[in-house]
């Protein structure tokens, strides 16, 4: 994967895919490296397919999620490919809705957690002093409170709509991103270009979003993908113990929680949502791995 300097390149000026006279942008390089990572590209395709299944699937599927006209616990048939659940709702329609909500929650959590985490982390690392102490103490405080308990209490208090679950998960998901960003900002702030920027009168906002963030875009993206995977699993766990998304809405975790007692008698009710959850988080993990290799081919560290 490493581009070695002593490789004999094609002679300049001849028609070849490598044109040495043309400067290659960093983003092009990264994109090329990512698309060479077969597992990551496959995962990306599968991920998009799952998203499409949840988002556009219902348009092509005749039976609505709220339609409970089927029989109780019907086995798979042409009419209901995944059977029906306890109250006669079509399982495929349920699965589509569950997938959509899980994806929506996961993406919202990742976006919000990354925004908050990067902003606070960069502020702490760049401004140092009082701001750093305050933000770090808040992170310490948030880390000692078990997210699952607070999430449960808040979700119960504000009814389990998907955005409540997403907001609650996001408010407990930004700390690790903030810590990583803070560490990276601390070391970047020592570099000359940051000093030059602030010496020429750049505001804090300008320095953070024009100079610091573009230089951390690699780790930010990788951590954002990991946040997606974590959010998928956390949402499922919360819904499973009954403190997440609430009926009549549904999510992958809730479908499993409703149907796991049927695993031996009606296995399709359990394995359907199970496969979607595992595929979702597996794909996101692999995409994250591919991105990490693409942004920094030398780095071999795995995440904790």
């Amino acid at each position: 994967m490493l581009l070695t300097a002593n490789q004999p390149g094609p002679p300049i000026g001849t028609a070849s895919e490598f044109d040495a006279s043309k400067a290659r942008k960093q983003s092009t390089l990264i994109r090329q490296r990512f698309f060479r990572h077969k597992l990551a590209v496959t995962s990306l395709i599968v991920f998009l397919l799952i998203v499409a299944f949840g988002m556009i699937g219902p348009l092509f599927w005749g039976i609505s999620v709220d339609d409970s006209s089927g029989g109780r616990f019907e086995p798979p048939s042409a009419e209901h490919p995944l059977g029906t659940n306890q109250i006669g709702k079509d399982m495929l329609a349920q699965l589509m809705r569950g997938t959509r909500l899980s994806v929506q929650i996961a993406l919202t959590v990742a976006v919000l957690a990354t925004l908050v985490g990067v902003t606070l982390g960069a502020l702490a690392g760049y401004l140092r002093g009082f701001v750093d102490t305050a933000i770090s103490r808040v992170i310490d405080l948030m880390l000692i409170i078990p997210a699952i308990a607070v999430a449960g209490i808040l979700v119960k208090a504000f009814s389990g709509s998907w955005y409540v679950v997403a907001l609650v998960l996001a408010s407990f998901g930004w700390m690790s991103i903030a810590r990583i960003t803070r560490g990276e900002t601390l070391s970047l702030s020592q570099r000359e270009f940051i000093e030059a920027a602030s010496a020429s009168g750049a505001t804090t906002r300008w320095v953070i979003f024009r100079h610091l963030v573009p230089n951390m875009v690699g780790s930010i993206t990788v951590n954002a993908t990991l946040a997606i995977a974590l959010a998928v699993l956390s949402e499922a766990a919360l819904s499973f113990i009954g403190l997440g998304v609430q009926i009549p809405d549904t999510s992958l975790g809730l479908i499993i929680s409703e149907n796991y007692a049927q695993i031996t008698t009606r296995p399709w009710l359990f394995w359907g949502p199970f496969v979607v959850i595992v595929a979702l988080s597996l794909c996101v993990n692999f995409i994250g791995d591919g991105l990490r290799d693409a942004f920094d081919p030398r780095q071999t560290k795995v995440r904790a």
């Binding site: 699993l233 959850i277 595992v278 993990n285 692999f286």
Partner: peptide, 21 residues
Amino acid sequence: AFLMFSMPVFCVAVILKTYGI
């Protein structure tokens, strides 16, 4: 390891429970 990372805990529990029975 990757598979375990991506599996919700309760799914592992449910599957193990089934096979335990």
